[in-house]
Design a protein around this nucleic acid. Structure first.
Lengths: 336, 336
DNA sequence: TGGAGAGGGTTATCCGGTTCAGGAGAGGAC
DNA sequence: GTCCTCTCCTGAACCGGATAACCCTCTCCA
């Protein structure tokens, strides 16, 4: 039993394929009576448009792509991407757009996947995440002439539209807060140094500490293991920091454990701040002071802009809200 | 600048479209010299097959679907799905299959999404997750006659292929382990009662405790909040349990915090076991004894079977490895 | 020398829609 | 009665490939 086509409907209704096409697409060219009859028949036999046939006539794919270049295991651990995706999905679902997802292992493969999808008319546009400096993917995507929204700083997105947030502002707020608590030796356990936002935060951190506090920055791969190792090293140094700012909650939680292991009491001897809030950050003891941002809505904004791009509108770079500091039990006054 | 088609290649090479089609698909009917020339031209102008045109001729979509019916926020918190997806992706990527993902808000919408995707030839098959008793989606998908792999117990998957793991076995191992440690009052903080695997675990738990230990089961929605609330209630009861088994790591971590808040020392006064291991479970103090399973490989097995189904093979239900107990610091002997 | 067979192409047609250029018939204005 | 316009509908072409069927040329062998 094969799937019904408009030809089937046409023969049942005793009209031509064209009349059926017009009727089902709400176009003028058929009387209301005929249209109603055709729609009724289509409903009855369960007709659905064949997207392939439509696409062949240059229609939209109603689908956007996202290739993620991260070790698969990290995805399960870091809630960021899943939250981002859920935000994106929220917007797409409203417009009946689907998300085509593929996990890849290299940037080159990522560019390739996008080329394929676009070349095969599978997607109408795509997101680019984990922006790096001198990112080769930007040039490749520009060449494709495909609608793309970069989720990352607009200074590195070339001619592609960007949705980004001012991480510098959040860093300054955090450093200001810690200074007000009397902290004068700060550390930052950062993520991958090649990512644009890492460097941005690094610079803002260094600048905010300039002249008012000693500071040190350690780079990691975002895993709890490296977060723990970095913490251990920092806390063993002779002039150990009195406050540490972590680039994600996983590392912050790991750092907290290390501190407790080393009998460094939080927040009495050490204050801890996590970038990205999560139920997890709230659930450990003491609950973590965190830089809260609404990741799903970040994704939603990116999705809205991508859909706008696809419908031909021009989209200026959009600066999303900066993360805001949510003080909790893991931060307190520095001991004199 | 429009996308090149085989007609463009044909005119450049001075042959017919058909010759190009044969050449590019590795079919006989063209000389090796011509084939090489055609392939070179295709490469040079960056030709990619238009998937719509191929689909119109009954070709595969090279894509499988997954509709997730969960509040978007949960997805970010629960690593299970992201790990499952990463495992699925691993297999799909090898065969150049993509994953079409959509988050929906109801089961009805979920069935609808599958109907659309299938009706529009966007997918060659799909996964069904979060299986429930008397699940209406099973009947709907059976009616579609689409290749489907159910990730859940085969007893409830009707005529659809299932990939599942024996949770009962893991429950029995856990209860046995706790009994050996001297625990005689056990509690289980379970997930959504309407899910098949929840009931399966419930029954195994009750049965394993039968006659050898008192037991109580509380159902939650998997969130840390409900896990904390359940723990508070359990620990306040006059004959409080000496060991609690949680249905995910989020709730276990929340439960651990509550215990510490209530001055119930873990593992001296209370042993805690988490279903599903994660960096998180290892990072809290004490690290959580957990039921470890390889979720990515679970997803990979499901994906392999779906691809087999799609290529027309028949796929018997597949029972994946049961979770195994990984003892850590959160469990210890019961106090006499 | 005629004919079979293989190699290397070609032409025609189809997939399921969309779109364009008409055409038949009704109704109105002059 | 003629001409024009408007409504409603149709045939044909097209999108980019796949496929069936056929055709020409060359080789080889009886």
């Amino acid at each position: 039993m094969k799937r019904p086509t408009i030809a089937d409907i046409a023969s049942r209704a005793g009209v031509s394929k064209v009349a059926v096409s017009y009727a089902l697409n709400g176009q003028p060219g058929v009387s209301e009576a005929t249209r109603a009859r055709i729609v009724a028949i289509a409903d009855e036999i369960g007709w659905r448009p064949n997207s392939a046939a439509r696409a062949l006539n240059g229609a939209r794919a109603n689908c956007v792509g996202l290739a993620l270049c991260r070790p698969a295991r990290i995805l399960g651990v870091e809630p960021f991407f899943m939250e981002l995706i859920s935000g994106i999905e929220g917007v797409l679902a409203d417009r009946s757009y689907a998300l085509l997802l593929q996990v890849v292992t290299s940037h080159q493969q990522e560019s390739e996947v996008y080329r394929h999808w676009w070349g095969e008319s599978r997607i109408d546009g795509a997101f680019l995440v984990d922006l790096r400096y001198a990112d080769t993917r930007v040039a490749e995507l520009e060449r494709l002439d495909m609608p793309v929204v970069v989720i990352g700083h607009s200074s590195e997105s070339g001619s592609l539209s960007a949705v980004w947030s001012d991480d510098g502002e959040a860093v300054r707020e955090t450093v200001g807060y810690l200074r007000a608590l009397g902290h004068r030796r700060l550390a930052r356990v950062a993520g991958l140094p090649e990512l644009v936002h890492t460097t941005e935060r690094d610079q803002a951190f260094a600048q905010a500490c300039e002249g008012v506090a000693e500071h040190v920055i350690v780079h990691t791969d975002y895993t709890g293991e490296e977060g723990a190792r970095a913490t251990r090293r920092l806390l063993s140094s002779p002039d150990r920091p009195t406050a540490i700012v972590y680039d994600n909650d996983i590392m912050a939680v790991a750092g907290l454990s290390v501190a407790q292991e080393m009998r460094v009491e939080v927040p009495r001897d050490l204050s801890i701040v996590a970038w990205d809030d999560s139920p997890l950050a709230q659930v450990v003891r003491p609950p973590l002071t965190a830089l809260t941002r609404d990741i799903p809505s970040y994704g939603a904004h990116a999705a809205q802009r991508l859909l706008a791009l696809i419908s031909g509108e021009s989209v200026p770079p959009y600066q999303d809200q900066a993360a805001v500091l949510t003080p909790r039990g893991s931060t307190g006054p520095a001991r004199p």
